[in-house]
């Protein structure tokens, strides 16, 4: 079976960040989950802080960035996407939303997505479901049911969730994403809209005008 591409996008601001830490744990678990199903996979991780200027330029002035375009192309071509945002003021971070806002509205259609988030305390944990999940519903992505929230205390051995520790939640969510990826055919590569050879079907002048051209 062909190799699947997992793309990880994290919106952590520090280096290293708790978001990245969680993202790495999630991608390792998803890779392992796919391996158990006999599916090979590769992982590519993007830190949005490295694209902050490009994102702002894109949104404020429309100025393109080839590195941002390359990143967005990789995201759109992924077989599965893992996203992690810190929770600020009850919601995803501004940097994370910049990324969502530059996505083509069809880029994530029916793509399996695992949502992760982190914050100082577990009192923010529902932000995944009331703030982040609707973004992926809007984009018609297929977010797996389990989101993984990591509070600062989850990274220590005391004060975290002792009944359902972080790793257990990671494994559950990663299993769901691995299953969703494995059940799907590899994501077909995007059609280059500027490739004359690929130009056809529904985009030829006759199709474009259709009955609407008037006679």
């Amino acid at each position: 079976m062909s190799e699947r591409r997992i793309v990880v996008v994290t919106a952590g601001l520090g280096t290293p960040s708790s978001s990245r830490l969680l993202a790495d744990r999630l991608s390792i678990a998803v890779t392992a989950g796919l391996e158990e199903r006999g599916v090979r996979s590769s992982v590519e991780t993007f830190e949005l802080r490295e694209y902050a200027r490009d994102l702002v330029d894109r949104l404020t002035t429309g100025f393109p960035s080839q590195r941002l375009d390359a990143m967005l192309a990789d995201v759109g071509a992924a077989d599965g996407l893992i996203v992690v945002s810190p929770i600020f003021s009850t919601s995803y971070s501004g940097l994370f939303k910049l990324f969502i806002d530059v996505l083509d509205t069809e880029a994530l259609e029916s793509m399996p997505v695992l949502i992760g988030a982190n914050a100082g305390t577990a009192r923010h944990s529902l932000a995944i479901d009331y703030a982040i999940r609707p973004l992926f519903a809007y984009l018609h992505a297929d977010a797996v049911p389990t989101g993984v929230f990591a509070a600062s205390s989850d990274w220590g051995d005391s004060g975290g969730d002792a009944v359902r520790p972080l790793q257990e939640r990671i494994d559950r969510a990663a299993g769901e994403l691995a299953r969703a990826i494995a059940l799907r055919d590899p994501r077909p590569s995007a059609i280059d809209p500027f490739d004359p050879a690929a130009f056809g079907d529904g985009r030829l002048m006759g199709d474009l005008l259709g009955g609407a051209g008037g006679r």
């Binding site: 429309g62 100025f63 393109p64 080839q66 280059d192 500027f194 490739d195 004359p196 130009f199």
Partner: peptide, 18 residues
């Protein structure tokens, strides 16, 4: 005037082919 030439090389290339 706002975007890099690589994009327009493809766009113009498409027009020329068509």
């Amino acid at each position: 005037i706002f975007w890099p030439k690589e994009h327009f090389m493809r766009l113009i290339g498409l027009y020329r082919q068509r």
